[in-house]
């Protein structure tokens, strides 16, 4: 199959980006917090799809495994434990809605303007081969072994801290 199917791939990626932006707007505006958490899961899946289009498949699967599989479970557990079933009609936005919208749109506009204008030093498309899992493993245990060890300590600290904070005083 020597067909060039990249046009369909690109259309799919743009569609996923659009759906992710709409879902992100849903995350920050929905009143029902459970639905906001579900739209966050949609954004995370969209991000994983964008990673696949950037040829970072390992990172996409790690994103799905950790974010959608574990972090969403945590968030939804917390939503279910701290909300009553009749809570959706309470307004979820505080009174700073309009100034926040102005500031954030200004920030977004400035960022996008600079991004489109800056001369990024993009190298030619075929220079580096796509990153394989072997390359990631060599870098993780070669150059970046010190952050790797530190992050395992951080994870243990977070585990012990979360258990200590959340347990009942008996």
């Amino acid at each position: 199959m020597n067909a060039d199917l990249s046009l369909f791939g690109n259309i799919a990626v743009y569609a996923i980006m659009g759906v992710s932006v709409i879902a992100a707007i849903g995350v920050v505006t929905l009143r029902n917090l459970f639905h906001a958490a579900l739209t966050l899961a949609m954004v995370l899946l969209g991000t994983a799809a964008v990673f696949i289009s950037l040829q970072a498949e390992f990172l996409a699967m790690v994103q799905i495994l950790i974010y959608v599989g574990a972090v969403m479970t945590l968030i939804i557990f917390a939503v279910m434990l701290t909300s009553r079933l009749t809570d959706e009609s309470i307004p979820q936005q505080n009174k700073q809605g309009f100034p926040a919208f102005l500031v954030v749109s200004l920030l977004g506009a400035v960022l996008i303007f600079i991004l489109l204008q800056a001369p990024w030093p993009i190298h030619a498309p075929g220079v580096h081969s796509p990153v394989s899992v072997t390359d990631l493993a060599k870098a993780m245990l070669g150059n970046y072994v010190f952050p790797f060890e530190v992050i395992s300590v951080i994870l243990i600290a977070a585990l012990i801290g979360a258990v200590t904070i959340a347990k009942k005083d008996s």
């Binding site: 932006v21 992100a24 995350v27 920050v28 906001a36 958490a37 966050l40 974010y67 968030i75 954030v104």
Partner: peptide, 29 residues
């Protein structure tokens, strides 16, 4: 541009959500 748009939407969420868990999920964005 996609990442900048997600960033701005997340920042809007942090600034306007009343529920703490809502703020946490905007941080994830």
């Amino acid at each position: 541009v996609f990442a900048a748009v997600l960033f701005s939407i997340g920042a809007f969420g942090i600034l306007t959500r009343r529920n703490i868990i809502g703020i946490l999920i905007s941080i994830e964005l």
